Simulated assay, not measured.
Amino acid sequence: MSLTADRTEIEAIFQRLAKAHADRDAGAIVALYAPNAVIYDLAPPLGHRGMERHSVSEWLATWDGPIRIDIRDLELTIDGDLAFATALNRMRGLQGGAEQDLWFRSTTCFCKADGRWRIIHEHTSVPFYMDGSDQAALDLEP
């Protein structure tokens, strides 16, 4: 497969992730990850292995409707059967009746096995104010 085809396939994974969040489809989200993927999410714990459908379903249930995720400044590097992407992401929707609008950063690593790209590592984070408050810097925008 050509580098262009690989790039197109990986970009399509991000589009499927965005659609699955909008549809609140836990199964579609989980299907894009390798079973033992290393996950460093925004929410505790510090990290875990594997994207579990029941955990994703529980989180999706905390939203009152679609979750909109927009990707900005996507940079993708592909070398053989490994790839990584960095991006700024905006997540919006209603949660507990309150409007949520959050920018976060992500690094996503992919491995191609049996002709299919899957996420093997994902790290998402928000910066925090280092002024002693330890507050997440949720008011930042690119």
Rank of each mutant, 00 (worst) to 15 (best):
C109N: 04
T124G: 07
R49M: 00
T4M: 01
V30M: 08
D70H: 12
T8I: 07
E122S: 15
R16P: 01
I71P: 00
A18N: 03
M91I: 10
R53S: 07
A85G: 13
K112L: 12
I120F: 03
I71W: 10
I119T: 09
A22V: 00
R92T: 13
G96V: 06
S125N: 13
Q15L: 04
S133M: 01
L76S: 11
P142E: 06
R116K: 12
T77Q: 14
I39Q: 13
R24Q: 13
G132Y: 00
D79G: 00
A31I: 09
D81G: 11
L60G: 11
R49N: 08
G96Y: 02
A43F: 14
W59M: 07
W103L: 00
R90I: 01
A61L: 04
Y33C: 03
Y33I: 02
R105L: 04
S106N: 12
A98Y: 07
W117N: 05
K112R: 15
T107M: 13
A31C: 12
W63T: 12
A28L: 08
A18W: 00
R90P: 02
D25Q: 02
E58V: 12
G50R: 08
G27W: 10
A98M: 14
E122G: 08
A87N: 09
A137G: 12
M1L: 10
A22E: 04
F84T: 08
P44L: 02
H123I: 04
V38H: 07
P66H: 08
R68C: 06
R118I: 01
V38N: 02
S2P: 13
L17S: 03
R118A: 04
D6F: 02
A26Q: 07
T77S: 13
M1R: 13
F110L: 11
L60H: 10
W103I: 01
T8L: 06
I29S: 12
W63A: 02
G50Y: 09
T4D: 08
G93L: 00
L102R: 10
R72E: 15
T62Q: 04
V56Y: 08
C109V: 09
A31K: 14
T107H: 06
P66M: 00
P142W: 06
A12N: 14
I29A: 05
A28I: 05
E141H: 08
L17N: 06
A61M: 03
H48P: 04
G65C: 06
H121I: 01
S106Y: 00
L102T: 14
E58H: 09
A12Y: 00
D25S: 10
D41V: 05
C111S: 11
T8C: 00
I29V: 15
T62D: 05
K112W: 10
A34G: 07
Q100I: 11
Y40S: 13
N36W: 05
A37S: 12
Y33M: 03
L82W: 10
S55N: 10
Q95N: 12
E11W: 00
S57G: 04
A18L: 09
D101S: 13
M91K: 13
F104G: 03
